[in-house]
Design a protein around this nucleic acid. Structure first.
Lengths: 108, 108
DNA sequence: TCCATATTTCCAGCATATTCGAAATATGTA
DNA sequence: TACATATTTCGAATATGCTGGAAATATGGA
């Protein structure tokens, strides 16, 4: 619950959400902080602060590669968050869960 | 995207997340504001402000019933949010989507 | 070593969010 | 009408979050 709030807060910011989505799309290769800053048109220091917040929430991890820092999305954390959000849905509310099945099956 | 950030911000608060989860569990009957305040041990005015934030995000709706205000979770908004969060998962990252399938099928 | 690149850290200022007490509003009941 | 209940609105204090400039750190190359 505490970590869900941390993750939600990390994603509840336009720049951070956009950064996270780019990292999800980038897949296992990840993206360098500078490349993210360019694509998102953010100042490097501002982006760094925001990546730090995503990292503290466990949604991304960083790894140094030469002069660059490569950031990658952490799928486990995202899965945990999604799992938490739908956790209660069968305790009275298949209305959420059933559409979710559709989203998931359309997607995969 | 903008509405996703609004919804995420609304849920990124311990009290609001707990309130929303209670409403999800409560199902179509919903819960009165006072009942929520009792269960969550929140002052009525504080809860009211927080319900207003959830309502503004479209995650709950309110309906007067006598002296009480009945709040209900809005499943469509939650489904949209979850859909948005997994939207990109197949653009390189079935790692998120596949576990989500499992979550959804375990649940329903 | 010296310099350029990549990124982070520090700091200050500004904006937004959170909470609470008190007062106001709406409804039901005697 | 008068009063109790349920909830919201208002206002102010406090806390937290966000941003950008400047400086610091880390790495690679000449």
């Amino acid at each position: 619950m505490k970590s869900a709030v941390t993750s939600l807060a990390a994603l509840a910011h336009e720049g951070r959400l956009a950064a996270f989505r780019l990292l999800v799309q980038a897949g296992g290769e990840g993206l360098a902080a500078g490349e993210l800053a360019r694509r998102l048109d953010m100042l490097p220091n501002t982006l760094s602060a925001n990546l730090n917040i995503l990292s503290h929430a466990g949604l991304v991890v960083a790894q140094r590669d030469g002069r660059s820092m490569i950031y990658r999305a952490q799928y486990d954390a995202m899965r945990d968050l999604l799992g938490f959000l739908v956790e209660d849905c069968c305790g009275g509310s298949p209305e959420i869960c059933a559409p979710l099945m559709k989203v998931a099956s359309d997607c995969c």
